[in-house]
Amino acid sequence: SLTLTVRGEEAVRRWYKWAQAHNLEVEVETHGDEYVLHIK
C-alpha cells in the first residue's frame, strides 16, 4: 500500500489512472488544496 500527498486535481487523476491500470483501489482525502491518496 502507498500513501501520497499531491497538489491539484490533475495529479490526482494521473495517479487514479495509474492505480486502475494496476487493479488497485484508491481512497482520496482532501485537505484544502492538497490531496492525500491511499493506494491499496
Rank of each mutant, 00 (worst) to 15 (best):
Y35R: 03
T5E: 04
K40A: 07
E27P: 00
A11M: 10
W18E: 02
L2Q: 04
K17Y: 10
R7G: 05
A19N: 01
N23Q: 09
T3A: 05
H31K: 15
A21W: 11
G32D: 08
Q20P: 00
A11I: 07
A21L: 13
L2W: 14
K17S: 10
L4F: 08
H31T: 08
H38K: 11
E25I: 13
L4H: 04
E27S: 13
A11V: 08
L4G: 02
H22Y: 06
D33K: 06
E10Y: 06
K40S: 12
L2K: 05
E27Y: 14
T30I: 15
W18Q: 01
R13N: 13
H22A: 04
H38G: 02
L24T: 02
W18H: 02
D33H: 07
T5A: 07
Q20E: 14
R7P: 03
V6I: 08
E10W: 07
T5R: 14
V6N: 01
G32I: 05
A11Y: 05
H22V: 03
D33L: 07
H22S: 03
T5F: 07
V28L: 10
K17E: 15
V12Q: 03
T3Y: 06
R14W: 15
E29H: 08
L2P: 05
N23H: 12
V12N: 02
K40H: 12
H38F: 08
G8H: 06
H31L: 11
W15L: 10
A11L: 10
S1F: 13
S1H: 13
R14K: 12
A21M: 13
V26M: 14
R7S: 10
R13Q: 13
K40W: 13
A11P: 02
R7C: 15
V36I: 14
L4Y: 03
D33G: 09
V26K: 00
V12S: 04
G32F: 05
E29V: 11
L37P: 00
K17T: 10
L4M: 09
V28N: 01
K17L: 12
R7D: 05
K40F: 14
W18S: 01
T30G: 09
K17V: 10
E27V: 14
L2T: 05
L37N: 00
A21T: 09
T3Q: 09
E10Q: 09
L2E: 04
R13D: 11
V28I: 13
E29W: 10
S1P: 08
V26R: 00
I39G: 00
R14F: 15
S1E: 14
I39K: 00
H31R: 13
V36D: 02
R13M: 11
E34A: 10
K40D: 04
E10V: 09
V6A: 03
D33M: 06
H22W: 05
E34Y: 15
T5K: 13
A19R: 00
G8L: 04
V26A: 03
D33T: 07
D33F: 06
K17F: 08
Q20N: 08
S1M: 12
A11H: 06
V12W: 05
V12E: 02
A19F: 08
A19G: 03
Y35V: 06
S1Y: 14
W15M: 06
A11N: 12
A21Y: 12
H31Y: 12
N23S: 09
R7M: 10
E9S: 08
D33N: 10
E25A: 10
E29G: 04
E27L: 12
A19Q: 01
E34W: 15
E9F: 11
W15I: 14
H38L: 09
T30M: 14
E29A: 07
E29K: 08
Y16K: 15
V26T: 03
V12F: 15
L24G: 02
V12L: 15
H31G: 04
E34D: 08
L24S: 03
V36T: 10
S1D: 14
K17R: 11
Y35F: 13
Y16W: 10
T3P: 03
N23I: 03
A11S: 07
R14D: 08
V28Q: 03
V26P: 02
Q20H: 09
T30N: 13
E9H: 08
E27H: 12
L24P: 00
E10A: 13
A19T: 03
G32M: 05
E10M: 07
V6M: 03
T5V: 15
V26L: 13
Y35T: 06
A21P: 00
Q20R: 11
H31M: 11
E10H: 09
A19Y: 02
N23G: 15
W18K: 01
H22K: 06
N23D: 08
E34P: 02
T3M: 09
V6D: 02
A19S: 03
L24Y: 14
W18A: 02
T3D: 05
L37E: 00
G32H: 04
Y16A: 09
A21V: 11
R13F: 07
I39T: 01
G32V: 04
E9A: 11
H22N: 10
V26N: 00
E34L: 15
H31F: 13
E25K: 11
R7H: 12
R14H: 09
V12K: 06
Y35H: 05
T5Q: 07
V36K: 07
H22Q: 07
E34Q: 11
A11C: 15
E25V: 14
L37G: 00
Y16Q: 15
A19V: 05
R7Y: 13
H22G: 02
L37Y: 01
Y35N: 03
R14S: 08
E25T: 15
R13Y: 08
L2I: 13
K17P: 01
V28G: 02
K17I: 12
E34R: 11
